[in-house]
Design a protein around this nucleic acid. Structure first.
Lengths: 103, 103
DNA sequence: CTTTATCGTAAGTCATAGCTTACGGTAAGT
DNA sequence: ACTTACCGTAAGCTATGACTTACGATAAAG
C-alpha cells in the first residue's frame, strides 16, 4: 500500500518535474537544480520525498549523489491504476450499452 | 496534456478517497459525504477539482447529482505512466546487467 | 593540511489550499 | 403555494507544506 505515497509525491508539480528529470536521465542534485527554478536544497527535499515513496534511489559517487528512478513506486502506481481502470471501464461500457438500449 | 491535473487532483488523500468511492460505485454528493470525515461542501469542492481533471462526471437526477468516474483522466494518467514506466524499466535493466558484468 | 566542491538538514517565512459555516437556488413532495 | 431535500458557491480561517538562507559534514583536490 505505497501508491498513496507515490500519488502524494507526484501531486506537486515541481516535484513531479524533478522525478521526470531523473527518470529521463540519472543526475546529481546539482545538475537537477541547475535546470529548475528552485534552489538546490529544495530539490534535495523533493528527492527525499520521492525516495520515501520508492520513486527514486541514489548512489554515492564521490561527494556527489546520483539519483535514479526506481521501479518500485511506478509499480505500486501501476497496480493501483489498473485496478480502477478496469473497474471504471467496465462500468462505463455498461452505461453506454444501457443508454443505447434505452434509446 | 492533462495528466498533470489528474496527478495534482489525486495527490490529496481525501480527494483520492472521494474518487475511489465514486469509481467503486456512482453516488450522489450526500452519499459520498456520509462515508467521509469531511463536510458535504468539502466533497463538492473535491468533486469540482476531479471533474476539471477529467476524472469524474455528473448527471443530474432530480435534485440529486450522481457522480461517476470518467475514463478520460485515467487515460491520461495511464499514458503518462506507460511512458516513464518503459523508460525507467529499460534503464533499470541496463543497470542490473552492467552490474553483473562488472562483477 | 588546507581548500574546494557537493550535498543533507535545521530554522524560519509565507503562500497555498483544504475545511467549515452561511447562503442561495432548483426540483420534488404535500 | 409552501415546505423539504439536495446541492453549488462565497467568504473566511487555519494548517500544511514548499521555498529560502544558513550551517555542518564528507570527500576529492591542491
Amino acid at each position: 500500500m505505497t501508491y498513496d505515497k507515490a500519488l502524494s509525491a507526484l501531486g506537486d508539480t515541481t516535484r513531479r518535474h524533478v522525478f521526470e528529470a531523473v527518470a529521463r536521465k540519472p543526475q546529481s542534485v546539482g545538475q537537477i537544480a541547475a535546470d529548475m527554478p528552485v534552489s538546490r536544497p529544495a530539490v534535495s527535499q523533493h528527492l527525499r520525498v520521492l525516495s520515501d515513496a520508492g520513486l527514486v534511489m541514489c548512489q554515492a559517487q564521490g561527494t556527489r549523489r546520483i539519483y535514479t528512478a526506481c521501479p518500485d513506486g511506478l509499480d505500486a502506481l501501476r497496480s493501483w491504476l489498473d485496478r480502477y481502470w478496469s473497474e471504471v471501464m467496465s462500468r462505463f461500457a455498461d452505461e453506454v450499452n444501457s443508454g443505447k438500449e434505452d434509446a
